[in-house]
Nucleic acid binder design. Sequence first.
DNA 1: GACCCGTGGTA
DNA 2: TTACCAAGGGT
Length: 365
Amino acid sequence: MPAAANPAVAKPVPALPDPGALLAWYDRHQRRLPWRAPSGLRQDPYRVFLSEIMLQQTTVVTVAPYYDAFLRRWPDVEALADAPLEEVLSAWAGLGYYARARNLHACAKAVCERHGGQFPADEEALLALPGIGPYTAAAIAAIAFERRAAPVDGNWERVVARLFAVADPLPKARAKLRVLALTLLPRARYGDFAQAMMDLGATICTPRKPACALCPWQSPCAARALGAPERYPVKAAKAARPTRQGVAFLAVRADGAVLVRSRPPKGLLGGMSEVPSTPWETGGSVHPAIHAPFSASWTALNATVTHVFSHFALELQLWRADVPADARAPAGHRWVLPGGFDAEAFPSVMRKVLAHAQPFFTGPE
DNA sequence: GACCCGTGGTA
DNA sequence: TTACCAAGGGT
């Protein structure tokens, strides 16, 4: 007869994570952020919406000045809905993921036209709005409307993966992590709990070197019990990032104006302003002169602009032509004086290009 | 599910 | 310098 386990020496079963322990920690350690309401008060849904869109894949430090500028310029959803898209894109320039700006504007219009200017409180209704996915719908429902919802973001995934030592690699493990996350929800204070999970992930349960000694959930954490919390969540290998090449045509008028055009409304840098260029190709086999906006004495500058996008790196050679003050802009192009650069929707890569239109523009620094 | 879609900071 | 990372969404 095999020896039965002795209950007297059996390892203690780890306690399930207690939502109350995290909320108590949050009450003492929550971060003060521009988009958060004073403790105990609900935040304006528009402000939650604006901050959540900006914070998608973007850090708190980067978002803060943009959030303040947007709120000052468009203090409510009606003001944003009434703004021209070009102004929204210009104000968004530098933040990246420009489809967010287009959808932000489209969403503001939809809220005004379909919901009378009031954000819906239901996750399902929020999910139907442009630019609002599962995470953002849950975040607005929980934070702005105190609905029972789990806005599972990267912080939640990391915390949950460690609490339960989930070995399945992301992104396949996403469904399992969500199910586990739902088991953590408290009976109330859904907005605080959502933000507590984010604060925990941002300040304690960090990707590298988590501060487990300070964690309110150190006791029930399976990854910590295994001795290697930083190993979670497991992630699938990423594809290598290719490099594309191109030539940008810096046409500078005698008065300092630069020739500019707008990109197609969708896709990479959709709707943003740019200096005309060849297509950006991986082989770099295009003939630059064919793509010049007009014939002129183009001079290859001894300069290369490099920029890294989410899924490829770019190397842009610069060709410059200095033209008379009465030079005409080709169809689809326009001249923009340096004083008008800030009103244009130049993404970061184009600010790097424009830095070579000296001495009239000093560039991103 | 896979791929597209930006940017700046950090180790 | 490379690689990873940050409150994801659309197709």
